[in-house]
Design a protein around this nucleic acid. Structure first.
Lengths: 206, 206
DNA sequence: TCAAAATATGAATACATATTCATTAAGTAG
DNA sequence: CTACTTAATGAATATGTATTCATATTTTGA
């Protein structure tokens, strides 16, 4: 056995792992963490139940691997796309657009994502905290808000973290609305992100 | 046994039922629906496990009774308080204030409430839908927004339902923030509701 | 005080499902 | 082809917990 086939093996292993992971996204999104069974996930990924345990320690670690993968992706995508942008308003617009695009092509994951958002008090007796990445994401948002505050684009009489929370809430709410109405309707991202930016910046007054 | 004691019995029964219900709020809030056990709830209410089943058919119906009770209360309170008010802006301010006050004195329930909010896709294989009351509440909000739109207080280029969703999201977000920082800090409701009204109406721009 | 009715009890049952592991199959190298 | 290594299988195990029910306790009305 040479080094080449060794690394191919590893790659294969990663692929199968990824298979299981993406099957699990669908199952967790559909049923929620508790009601999703390891058999559901195995079946969906076309493996036997036990096989899943060759790739993941247990159900919880599978779940958190999934969270980690997706949230990292969200963070890295939005960071990249906003990286070179000078104008903060533009930055925020891009942030909105990219988040919509991300969740548009990860609709199952979105369900999981918002369910995590509401668990601020249930972190009790969980082995692993999801908080690490979740709060990295929130920190990133708060950073942009802070920047906007420095440049007098956003009012400075409230903490950036709070504004960031509100920003995220509006974004999620709009996405829920889109998913409820036409699940396939993530077209017009330009329009939709314009709408979100407008409401966020100017409020709803006539 | 006369009719008097019959009705007292009924009243007693209601009281014990209410006992169990309010114990369950705490347990469900702490652990979430799935991880909360009937024994937890029974212990908290100082009854034996079986006793709970004398008052509620099963876990799910206990849970939904709780939702029903609390949400009805929220709806009726806010409806009453805004009933005679002419000025829509004032109405919205009162709505915010009363919602804060309600969740301030029902903090455990708030956790349950927002967790329900994020379950829009998991209604699958639930015996009872919580939706009825939840959507009554949202309809009520949408009604007020619609009124504000008619009176040119809120812009009319978006559906009242969507604006209502955003309204609710901002409100919830602020409450989460309050609970995270100082759990006992539901003072200054006037200030806080002013803040929410301001952000909601005027956005975050400088 | 007493028997009948209403309540409460918590151990026993039923069931679901996460996790393990002895067995089977597939792949690899010599 | 054969021995060996790695991966996959799914039935068996372990555990947790919702729900039931025979039994015990309390309340009621006479």
């Amino acid at each position: 056995m040479n080094t080449y086939s060794l690394s191919r093996k590893k790659r294969d292993k990663q692929l199968r792992r990824a298979d299981i992971l993406s099957a699990s996204v669908h199952v967790f999104a559909q049923k929620g963490y508790e009601k999703a069974t390891m058999q559901d996930i195995a079946r969906k990924a076309q493996y036997a139940t036990g096989t899943v345990y060759l790739y993941f320690k247990d159900k919880e670690s599978l779940y958190f691997s999934l969270l980690e993968e997706k949230i990292s992706k969200l963070i890295s995508t939005t960071k990249e796309k906003t990286a070179g942008v000078k104008d903060v308003r533009e930055k925020i617009k891009i942030l909105i657009y990219e988040s919509l695009a991300f969740f548009g092509s990860n609709q199952d994951f979105f369900q999981i994502f918002i369910s995590e958002t509401s668990k601020f008090r249930w972190v009790i007796d969980r082995k692993i905290a999801p908080s690490a990445l979740m709060s990295e994401h929130m920190n990133y948002l708060a950073g942009i808000i802070r920047e906007a505050q420095r440049e007098k684009v956003i009012r400075s009489n409230f903490k950036a973290e709070h504004i960031a929370d509100i920003f995220a809430a509006i974004l999620s709410t709009v996405i829920v609305g889109l998913l409820k109405e036409k699940p396939g309707c993530f077209e017009n991202l330009k329009n939709i992100s314009g709408f979100i930016f407008d409401i966020f910046m100017n409020g709803v007054k006539a």
